[in-house]
């Protein structure tokens, strides 16, 4: 039995809302179970996806009365996962992802950061991040390196 390159893709959609990120994360990890991710890689996926999904829920669909779909597509490529998220919510301000500077902890007590960690965490792990707005659809795509162990 020779091992052939396996086409492995997890695709699903959730509806935005308070528990959307949790639900999508659980679905994705469930779908990726055959890859037998080690805890290091599972952590990176959880951290990045939680932040990306939170951003869509909070900023893409800011009105809880008007929820919308969040599509997740995750494809196994040579050295990791190509992940694309789509939504029909608000476009990203300035048409591009935030810079994601490191949180500044060298500040007065009262000025310690209570936010701004999200994009910093995303950019720590995600590579080749692209954002595009096509009509009313936002697509955020990136590559997440993992140690692939799948066997055919």
């Amino acid at each position: 039995m020779s091992s052939q390159p396996v086409s492995f893709c997890v695709t699903f959609s959730v509806t935005s809302g308070v528990f959307a990120a949790r639900k999508a994360l659980a679905k994705l990890l469930d779908g990726l179970a055959p890859l037998q991710l080690d805890s290091e890689d599972a952590d990176s996926i959880k951290m990045v996806l939680a932040e990306v999904l939170n951003n869509i829920v909070e900023h893409g669909y800011p009105n809880p009365q008007e929820p919308g779909p969040i599509g997740v597509q995750c494809t196994l490529v040579g050295d990791g996962l190509d992940i694309a998220l789509t939504d029909t919510g608000e476009p990203m301000p300035n048409g591009e992802p935030p810079i994601g500077n490191a949180p500044n902890t060298n500040v007065q007590f009262a000025d310690l950061p209570e936010g701004g960690f999200g994009w910093f965490l995303i950019k720590m792990f995600a590579q080749n991040i692209t954002y595009k707005r096509t009509g009313s659809i936002n697509t955020l795509a990136f590559h997440l390196p993992i140690r692939v162990k799948i066997s055919a």
Binding site: D43, E51, N54, A110, G116, F117
Partner: peptide, 30 residues
């Protein structure tokens, strides 16, 4: 924990004020 949870813990510490201590214990690896 995600960035929102992290922010909430920072906010809790700031609310307690600088003359009090908030320590964190039992952190799991993630």
């Amino acid at each position: 924990i995600d960035s929102s949870g992290l922010g909430a813990i920072v906010a809790s510490m700031k609310h307690m004020g600088q003359d009090r201590t908030l320590a964190l214990a039992g952190l799991t690896p993630t």
